[in-house]
């Protein structure tokens, strides 16, 4: 068969969802944000929730997430996304509300908002993208930067005795009573993407059913910040980041499993 014979509409098996706009993403080549955006929007599309969805974008690399996700979106001040999502969900309890934040946004400047939103059990989906660095501002140390990891503001490697240990905020919020589900994922393999999509689907269903806060961390590489090529960055992530930030379920249906 020739390529032309194969590439017919009836043979289509995968195509970018229309819930991602056609804008070219500003992300660096190989950045996980694009994959995570698409996983999220694919599930919203599959569940037919475009007209019921309100998303909250953060400050950081994914500040322009609202340009790519074809749903109604609000842009939050740095760290405040959970406060925004709280109000949206309280005022319109029948909508699907999600936040999308990076590690600086969710685990440093917005720690208070994160913890209190989770503690109140706001029935929203929180997507937390952890790439262990501040990408947007040029590769500075993040709360999640690994011990010894070199960044623009830890040029000799993170000295945990001076600046503290990489923060596992996901494990911190998991025991809170308001939190319904917590899991950690990656997007560096196709299987991992499928797993993430299943978690997103469950998170949407459970948050829509007002079970509590559903929290998904996605470890992602930042090849520019880590100064590697995209493929090597994914390998480095699998070898180092995932050793400290271990993927898998942490809380399932209100029960701690780790």
């Amino acid at each position: 068969m020739t390529l032309n014979e194969i590439c017919k509409p009836e043979n289509l098996v995968y195509k970018k969802t229309s819930l991602l706009t056609d804008k070219v993403m500003h992300y660096c080549p190989g950045c996980g944000h694009g994959t995570i955006h698409r996983a999220l929007m694919e599930v919203v599309d599959e569940m037919g929730l475009q007209d019921k969805t309100i998303g909250v974008a953060p400050v950081g690399c994914s500040v322009l997430a609202y340009d790519y996700m074809n749903v109604d979106m609000q842009e939050a001040a740095h760290g405040r996304a959970p406060a925004l999502a709280t109000a949206i969900k309280r005022l319109m309890p029948e909508k699907f509300v999600f936040t999308y934040q990076g590690d600086g946004d969710l685990a440093a400047i917005g720690t208070a908002e994160t913890i209190h939103c989770c503690n109140r059990g706001e029935p929203i989906l929180m997507v937390f993208v952890n790439n262990a660095i501040y990408g947007m501002t040029g590769g500075q140390m993040a709360p999640t930067t690994l011990e010894g990891m070199k960044t623009a503001t830890s040029p000799y490697g993170r000295d945990v005795h001076k600046v503290g240990w990489p923060l596992r905020i996901t494990e911190m919020i998991a025991p809170l009573n308001g939190v319904w589900s917590v899991s950690r994922h990656t997007v560096h393999t196709p299987a991992a993407v499928q797993k993430l999509k299943r978690a997103i689907k469950k998170g949407i269903e459970d948050s829509m059913a007002h079970k509590g806060t559903c929290f998904i961390e996605v470890c992602s590489s930042c090849n520019s910040g880590w100064k590697m090529n995209p493929v090597d960055a994914n390998k480095w992530m699998a070898e180092h980041v995932l050793e400290y930030f271990v993927p898998g379920d942490i809380k399932v249906d209100g029960q701690m499993v780790r």
């Binding site: 043979n11 289509l12 098996v13 995968y14 969802t17 992300y27 190989g30 694009g34 994959t35």
Partner: peptide
Amino acid sequence: GHICPDGVITVY
């Protein structure tokens, strides 16, 4: 298609 960060691959 599933992993492409920029969603530029269509698969048949």
